[in-house]
Design a binder for these strands. Structure first.
Lengths: 225, 225
DNA sequence: GAAGGACACTGACAATCGTCAGGGTCGTTC
DNA sequence: GAACGACCCTGACGATTGTCAGTGTCCTTC
């Protein structure tokens, strides 16, 4: 029996061929209707605003406006829209941020089309769903490292992870170098590492700072004082 | 370019839903015949061995046996098979490594299904193709940085990028700390950076050292609740 | 064999980093 | 108001880092 109305769906993924693929995979299911697609976060937000769908399936790793930010804005503007986050990699920060931003579910791209459709139905009916692989990340405390950083420490870490010296960080933030040193020292304790280089690596691995996917640009402090 | 025999194709991607999507997108084209799919590098190798296809479309970022290694083995075993590399991100090391390993082409997932099909046809007929975005990475010298490192410098960089101090690196390599300092100093010059932290970041961005993408493992996908 | 270059190593300073022992502000609790 | 804790700031001191000048080895070239 056809339930009266199909689930209206918006898809967002910055990889065109993946987006096309998702579209075709999901169009197999009679109870799902794709009312819009988007190639980026900004596009996703406006597409959702236009079509007011039941469910949004959104990739988290997108340039410019990333998935988490898009989820946040969509949930703020249209709280009745159910958001399902999709991503290629299992990352603690992404899972928690997506949930915090308002996502009703979190799924990996290693799921099958059937699993995806099932998750969409669950989310559409007001339920929530989580990739089984994501559970241990939320349950235990395997990756709670660095989540107790103060705002200032996060500022410093951001610059530190770009390779700046304490002097440059101080100039950038309008502080004394000695002050920056203390922040760095506290960061080392909280990240459980021995020195700033290890901190930079750990911060990137834990996703505490934006990691440049593309190797093209290189942050270079204009030195020579 | 209408031929009686379709192009026989093997697809490999560790994300099941993406793999299904690619399969459906490409099955639209009458001149393409998908003779096998694989969820990982090892599976790709054996699938190619079994089916002896014209073209292999292979994702580069796969766990265990990654795409580059798979390409290398496929090209070694079956040199007549044309390999087309596919990846989500534009990374200098991946492009060059894929080409070195024997790939006839390099495409981004931001390509459309049509572009993908066109690239497959080009590669199948003995040509080669490259994502337009990948060209500047190979053409200019924006990322030739660090390719003139001596073996010893590479050893040191490997440890440095893991966050080790000079003293620890010295102990690890059986050197004096002062010696390590000189290697580090030379590395800084060659990587065009100011300090060791920036060197660690640059080395990872440029793919000069193995960068574990995420801190936690990836359990095997399965199940539906 | 001599000359040259690339590479690895080392000990000496100066600059930078990380730790220590403080002080200041703000908001909460008694 | 006093006490408390969280956060941010600062100068002084040892430890680490990065630079400099210099030695030894191996390999190629003349």
């Amino acid at each position: 029996m056809n339930t009266s109305v199909p689930i209206r769906l918006v898809l967002a993924d910055d990889h065109l061929v993946v987006l096309e693929g998702l579209e075709m995979v999901l169009s197999r299911f009679a109870d799902l209707e794709i009312v819009g697609t988007a190639l980026g976060g900004a596009e996703a937000i406006s597409r959702v605003a236009e079509t007011d769908p039941d469910v949004v399936l959104i990739d988290l790793s997108m340039p410019e406006i990333d998935g988490v930010e898009a989820i946040r804005r969509i949930c703020a503007a249209q709280p009745h829209v159910n958001v399902l986050a999709l991503t290629a990699f299992l990352e603690h920060r992404l899972v928690t941020q997506a949930i915090d931003a308002g996502a009703r579910g979190y799924l990996l791209k290693s799921a099958s089309g059937d699993e995806l459709a099932a998750a969409i139905r669950t989310v559409a009916s007001g339920g929530s769903t989580l990739a089984p692989e994501a559970l241990p990340l939320l349950a235990g405390a395997p990756e709670t490292i660095g989540h107790d950083l103060t705002p200032r420490e996060h500022d410093v870490l951001e610059h530190l992870a770009a390779g700046l010296s304490n002097k440059h960080i101080a100039a950038e933030l309008g502080l004394r170098p000695g002050t920056v040193r203390i922040h760095v020292s506290n960061i080392l304790v909280k990240l459980q590492v021995e020195n700033r280089t290890a901190a930079a690596v750990a911060a990137r691995n834990a996703g505490l700072v934006a990691a440049e996917r593309f190797a093209n640009d290189r942050p270079q402090p204009d030195a020579r004082d």
